[in-house]
């Protein structure tokens, strides 16, 4: 099966007043049809920029995007704004953290969704409205016949995010890019929205790239995971590989520093010392080495890649050393 989206050696550099700053270094990933790929990382790790630059959603005058990317086998990097606009919305849809980046406050939500449908397909106004009502029902907005005539400010945050998801799904996109879609929502509403997102993406057969910082959301939603740190994918694998046998010390830190909800409470939470390197960093070695509890002199050189099937990590540690440093945990 050929991948839906295939990104190779992506490098993104911003022009700033202080000179060029590289935010994404040599990132490669692929999204297979029907899968949910989670891209995790902390703020500034490059997780959003990697996706947005592929979709042409970064400021072109101030950004240099290098590498290759294909969507359905066709090159997508460097396409004209016009060509990209035909793809975005119809074949690839974006859901962002703040629904108000996708909704305009001055139009009714039904009109906004119908406009999106009519921009990509030749359908009558009436048919577009009917489809809009059906979509709003699909995303569990109560009384969709009335909700179409509401303005965004009349809806709660959770309802707005549902409307944005309805808009994103309106053209049956092959790929849905969801950038922290539930971060701004309350816990009980997040559970509703994730549940619905999972059901609808499966129903529409859409692939999903889920950008998040929440390892809990990753475990529940994703099939595969890419962990980013300082502009690089430091580890990638299936959800089972990553949660049951993580290889990279950064992934260990991410997982171990989450306070547990059951079982004994540790007196102190394991944490990662220090903080991420500044974005302009140019040293060739492992970017995590200054914070890594397993760092060695060799980490000053570019880290080698450990590979077993689809599980990969950018780290010098081999299997026996890893097992000694962090014994595999048996689930209680």
């Amino acid at each position: 099966m050929s991948p839906l989206l295939d990104v190779r050696h992506l490098r993104v550099t911003f022009t700033t007043d202080g000179g060029p700053v590289t935010a994404v270094h040599d990132v490669s990933f692929a999204v297979q049809p029907g899968e949910v790929l989670a891209v995790v990382g902390e703020s500034g790790s490059g997780k959003s920029v990697s996706l947005l630059s592929v979709l042409g959603l970064v400021d072109r005058r101030r950004t240099v995007v290098e590498g290759e990317a294909t969507f359905r086998g066709e090159p997508i990097l460097g396409l004209s704004e016009r060509a990209l606009r035909r793809i975005r919305g119809r074949d690839i849809a974006l859901i962002s953290q703040d629904p108000m980046t996708a909704l305009t406050p001055v139009h009714r939500i039904g009109d906004q969704i119908a406009e999106q449908i009519r921009a990509h397909e030749r359908v009558s106004r009436h048919a577009a409205r009917d489809r809009t009502v059906a979509l709003l029902r699909d995303v569990n907005i109560p009384m969709p016949e009335r909700a179409v005539d509401r303005y965004p400010h009349e809806l709660s945050g959770g309802m707005r995010q549902r409307a944005v998801i309805a808009m994103a799904l309106s053209c049956n996109p092959a790929l849905l890019v969801a950038d922290e879609p539930t971060t701004a929502l309350d816990t009980t509403v997040q559970a509703q929205v994730l549940d619905m997102l999972r059901r609808l993406s499966a129903q529409h057969g859409s692939s999903v790239v889920l950008i998040t910082h929440d390892m809990g959301v990753v475990a529940e939603m994703a099939t595969r995971v890419a962990v980013m740190y300082a502009g690089r994918i430091v580890e990638t694998g299936t959800v089972a590989e990553l949660f049951d046998d993580p290889w990279h010390p950064y992934t260990w830190g991410l997982l171990d520093s989450i306070p547990p909800l059951t079982g004994p409470r540790p007196r102190r939470l394991p944490s990662i010392a220090g903080m991420p390197p500044p974005p302009g960093r140019t040293e060739p070695g492992c970017p995590f080495a200054p914070r890594c509890r397993a760092a060695m002199p060799i980490c000053r050189l570019p880290p080698p890649e450990q590979v077993a099937g689809g599980h990969r990590a950018l780290c010098v540690l081999d299997a026996p050393t890893r097992a000694a440093l962090r014994p595999p945990r048996v689930a209680a």
Partner: peptide
Amino acid sequence: ALLSAIPVPVADPAAR
């Protein structure tokens, strides 16, 4: 309901 709604960072769905 609030406790049950929190996404848990474990791969095994049976552990939730």
